[in-house]
Simulated assay, not measured.
Amino acid sequence: MPIKDQIKNFAKKLVVERPDPPTLRALVSARKPAAIHFRDDGIVPNNPHLPMLLYRGAVNLKSRRFPPDVVIDTLFDMNGWGRSWRDTVYDFVHYHSQIHEVMGVARGTARIECGGVKGRILRLKAGDVAVLPAGTGHRLIEASRDFLVVGAYPQTGTYDECTDTRERPDAIKRIAKVRKPKTDPVLGARGPLLRSWRRQAART
């Protein structure tokens, strides 16, 4: 999301009560994520080495004390993924060539196309978390009226938004240079993202 959305969300953080680390850990399910690979489809480059990771039911959002978007936002922030935003997902195909992205569903359900038109349409619901490596195409197909996503980014990398096929040659070069994050946005420094992405990179 643009900088203005991140600034707006930062302002919200200053006025809401946020769960502490022990409370957060109790709300997180240490499930193994599904790894989904997407090939370059000629339009969207996707990521040649790193799979998208999908954590089903990663966060228990039934806390009466904290709103679900606050829980997810705080979880990502605690694990080193910041510059967050709260909104829906764009309904046009786009990807980020200089940074990875995590999206956690705070409310509602949606069908989101990942990997471009030749990728997969995934049904996401509240509590699910998807980690998209740089280059992964995504767009909203349809969503419930109450659909709300919290998005965030690792500490390294620069936000950009690629939608034009003329950008492909340069975007592919940028994707190859994006550093792997130091932490898993859901499970922290020892989370499965680090092992999964390290193994995949070693195979190539």
Score class of each variant (00 low, 15 high):
Gly108Ala: 07
His94Glu: 09
Asp164Ser: 10
Thr156Lys: 15
Arg166Thr: 14
Val59Pro: 00
Glu113Val: 08
Lys182His: 07
Asn79Thr: 12
Val28Asp: 02
Val93Arg: 10
Pro154Cys: 04
Ser29Gly: 07
Thr23Trp: 00
Ala176Asn: 07
Val71Thr: 14
Asp170Leu: 10
Ala176Leu: 09
Met1Cys: 11
Ile141Thr: 08
Asp40His: 06
Asp69Ile: 00
Gln6Asn: 09
Gly119Asn: 02
Arg123Thr: 15
Val89Asp: 03
Arg199Ile: 12
Thr74Gly: 00
Val15Phe: 08
Leu193Val: 12
Gln155Ser: 11
His37Thr: 13
Ala202Asp: 13
Pro21Ser: 10
Leu50Arg: 03
Asp146Tyr: 03
Pro33Lys: 02
Val71Tyr: 06
Cys162Phe: 12
Leu75Arg: 01
Asp128Phe: 09
Phe38Ser: 01
Val129Asn: 02
Asp91Phe: 11
Ala58Glu: 04
Cys162Trp: 12
Ile43Met: 07
Thr156Gly: 11
Arg111Val: 03
His49Met: 13
Trp197Phe: 13
Glu17Gly: 04
Asp164Thr: 10
Ser144Gly: 08
Ala110Met: 13
Glu167His: 11
Ala130Phe: 13
Thr23Ile: 03
Ile7Gln: 10
Thr74His: 00
Asp91Ser: 13
Ala126Trp: 06
Lys182Ala: 15
Leu14Glu: 02
Pro185Ser: 06
Val117Ser: 14
Glu161Gln: 13
Pro68Tyr: 07
Asp69Trp: 03
Pro133Gln: 01
Thr136Glu: 01
Thr165Lys: 12
Ile3Asn: 04
Asp77Lys: 11
His49Val: 10
Thr163Tyr: 14
Gly157Leu: 05
Leu54Phe: 12
Ile72Asp: 04
Arg65Glu: 15
Trp81Ala: 05
Lys180Met: 15
Trp81Ile: 08
Glu161Thr: 10
Ser63Arg: 03
Val131Arg: 03
Arg56Gln: 07
Pro45His: 09
Lys125Thr: 14
Arg107Gly: 06
Gly188His: 06
Val16Asp: 08
Gly80Tyr: 02
Ile36Cys: 04
Gly57Phe: 03
Leu61Ala: 05
Ser97Leu: 04
Val150Met: 09
Pro68Ala: 03
Ile141Leu: 06
Ala201Ile: 10
Ser63Asp: 14
Lys32Gly: 04
Ile36Gly: 01
Leu122Phe: 05
Leu27Met: 14
Asp41Gln: 02
Ala110Ile: 09
Glu113Trp: 10
Pro2Met: 13
Arg179Met: 11
Ala106Val: 01
Leu24Ala: 01
Pro68Met: 07
Val117Leu: 15
Phe92Pro: 02
Trp81Tyr: 08
Tyr55Cys: 01
Ser97Met: 05
Ala26Thr: 06
Leu75Met: 02
Gly115Cys: 07
Gly57Pro: 06
Leu193Phe: 00
Tyr90Cys: 09
Gly135Asp: 05
Met103Thr: 09
Arg174Phe: 15
Gly188Leu: 08
Gly115Tyr: 06
Arg64Phe: 06
Arg174Trp: 14
Tyr159Val: 05
Met52Trp: 07
Thr204Ser: 14
Lys177Val: 09
Ala110Gly: 10
Leu54His: 07
Tyr95Thr: 11
Pro19Leu: 00
Arg179Glu: 14
Gln6Cys: 07
Pro21Tyr: 06
Thr109Asn: 12
Ile112Phe: 12
Asp164Pro: 06
Ala189Thr: 15
Ala143Glu: 12
Pro48Val: 10
